[in-house]
Design a protein around this nucleic acid. Structure first.
Lengths: 199, 199
DNA sequence: CAATCACCTTAAGGGTATTAAGGAGAGGAC
DNA sequence: GTCCTCTCCTTAATACCCTTAAGGTGATTG
């Protein structure tokens, strides 16, 4: 099998899934591919870029799996749910995302896709940015907490973790969507917050 | 200066603030204290415990700085704001929290303090758990995103980051508080979510 | 006074990412 | 066919890192 950036990313993903983030290393990836460690550097700048590519792949899959709901509220919930499912299925992916600096161009592309979805659902682009950031932030943080064995029992207790997540996610999505409406209708129940722009 | 767990934590904190999480290491801490690296192991089990103590100190300070608002909504907002301020002031503290497994006893204690606050503000203990988890998760995730140079411009754009955070935080807090009301009044606008408990 | 214990040292083992330099092979130019 | 070049990988080396083992020193205590 010819060495390739995609092949390396796949091998890394396999090891991450199998052994977790702590055990992931360039050496182990190279071993799995039957190659010496420095060979990876021909296809990948460094570890940070490799992990960034991995995170990017996860995010792309989430977007592909997110439904085509029409309203902003529903899309946000679908997006958040898909994001959390990804973090649950892909071991330590939350820790990975917390660790890496994804490539800027990719993030730009992904962001545009998301923002287009939300605009199509009737959100202003500025609020869509906030909403999208919020959903990703909330889901990432929740996944990190959830995968933390010592925090989980205190915070979740004997509650159903899925239901608790969905409850909070829904509240956040509805809250953000309601701000959007107040922007558009100008007679919403909540006034828009002041000074949302810099400068 | 006699070596001590607290002294070590303080030195670690200083290096974290000065050089960031990537540059933090036991060796550097030991150097700063004028001591050999293995000396640290007399006072600290391993790196994970040391970082956990650091995260614990941050969290304690946040709780101490959180106001004594009476309503659950206000307390949550105050808590979330203090948490984010801490992450902004203390460099890479979000990445640290994402990395460590804090000690269970400490988390228990802190959780109890928080939950007592929320119960005093009129929340059910179960919803307080969810609310508290949600605020910490959201703030942690937001801080991680915000400190990520390549994600920030896409997600926040030219918006005021402070205002955007506060907007989303407020929506989340109000949403969670409203669920609480519907629990207590049993005539709220939103029905309680089904199957919140496990089993 | 001797023994113990706390605390730190040096020494060593094994892990990591990364760079430098060199070799083997494919492909094209002439 | 020969030579050159470029791609892709190897070996070698550097410089970190965490952690454990074993040994020494000085204060404390019986």
């Amino acid at each position: 099998m010819a060495l390739d950036q995609q092949v390396i990313v796949s091998a890394a993903r396999e090891i991450l899934q199998q052994e977790g983030f702590d055990k992931l290393s360039l050496r182990k990836i190279a071993d799995a591919l039957g190659v010496q460690t420095p060979a990876l550097y021909w296809h990948v700048r460094d570890r940070a870029q490799l992990y960034g590519l991995l995170a990017e792949q996860f995010l792309r899959e989430v977007i592909a799996q997110t439904g085509l709901e029409t309203t902003g509220r529903d899309w946000l919930i679908s997006f958040g749910t898909a994001l959390r499912d990804s973090h649950r299925i892909n071991r330590d992916s939350a820790r990975l995302v917390a660790f890496v600096q994804p490539s800027q161009t990719v993030e730009q592309e992904v962001a545009n896709v998301i923002l287009d979805h939300l605009e199509a659902g009737g959100m202003s682009r500025d609020l869509a940015r906030i909403a999208c950031s919020s959903m990703q932030a909330f889901t990432l943080g929740w996944s990190l907490f959830e995968s933390n064995a010592s925090v989980r029992p205190m915070m979740i207790g004997n509650l159903d973790s899925d239901a608790a997540f969905l409850l909070a996610l829904t509240q956040l999505a509805e809250g953000l969507a309601s701000v959007d409406l107040s922007f558009q209708q100008t007679n919403g129940t909540k006034p828009p917050p002041p000074d949302l722009f810099v400068g």
